[in-house]
Amino acid sequence: MGGNLLEVRNLHKQFPIRAGLLRRTIGHVNAVNDVSFTLGTGETLGIVGESGCGKSTLGRMIMRVTDPTGGTIMFDGESLSELHGAKLRHARRKFQMVFQDPYASLNPKMRVEHILAEPLLVNGVMDREQARERAVRLLQRVGLRESDRLRFPHQFSGGQRQRIGIARALALSPKLIVADEAVSALDVSIQSQILNLMLDLKKEYGLSYIFISHNLAVVRHISDRVGVMYLGHLVELADKDSLYQNPLHPYTRALLSSAPVAKRGVQRDRIVLQGDVPNPANPPGGCPFHTRCPQAMDACRTVKPALRQLEPGHAVACHLY
């Protein structure tokens, strides 16, 4: 692992809520709130959290598909959040994305060969003939056959399509791949195949991943470090083993205790949270988790805890420590 490939500082995203005849803005949904982290070259960062916690928005901001409302993204020595137009298009070849739904992420009117060659052609990396050859090599690398190149997306299964999606992300030889729920839509048996393919590719090409998922087991399998998000905040960020064996934030503990264990006789202390996730348009003051936290104190209701490094490789945003 080398230096930092990606450095995210105080990233914010607010979506306006509009209502009424004149579509006036009557408030904001805080989708991502003050998130900072770094990602080393060759590292995999898993992001976990429940639905609506802002993990997909975070991934989309890093991909510059959604514009952040605040904060900076430094990628490979460049300030990504300031790039626009042709410069942004040029920079995009270094970071690519794998999508959740393999049925929606491939253009139904394009042949596979064209889908894989297009990134190379629009960026002027290769001529048509070379791009076609590379498309075939990519196809073979992700475990499909050369003869598949002239088929259309609907002629493949979900797992095969996800392989095509991965091949497309690889086409431009990126340094970073953001995988947003990349295996969630697949059968469990296919999930492990895709995960192992991603691990192999990472070793082979020296890729870094940001792996977004709600599936704790999947994230554990693939990640080096894991970040836990709650209500738009990054509440805990730690090395994989440290996080899974010694979760510090009460929310992380509750989350881990809710995951099923496939072993007989293992006693688990399930922490069942009371109430619902607060409305992100009207978040609670202080710690975002205090409304449901079994260990909430007075300070939690007023002061928002910062993400602090407690021990090497383990940071948490909680007043308990």
């Binding site: 690519q96 491939l106 253009n107 009117k109 999606g165």
Partner: peptide, 24 residues
Amino acid sequence: DFVVAAQTIGVTETRLLFRHILPN
């Protein structure tokens, strides 16, 4: 997603409109 994907591979807006959206 496939339109977002086209953006992430760096296609221009003209190409996005005429090669990805229009055929669909």
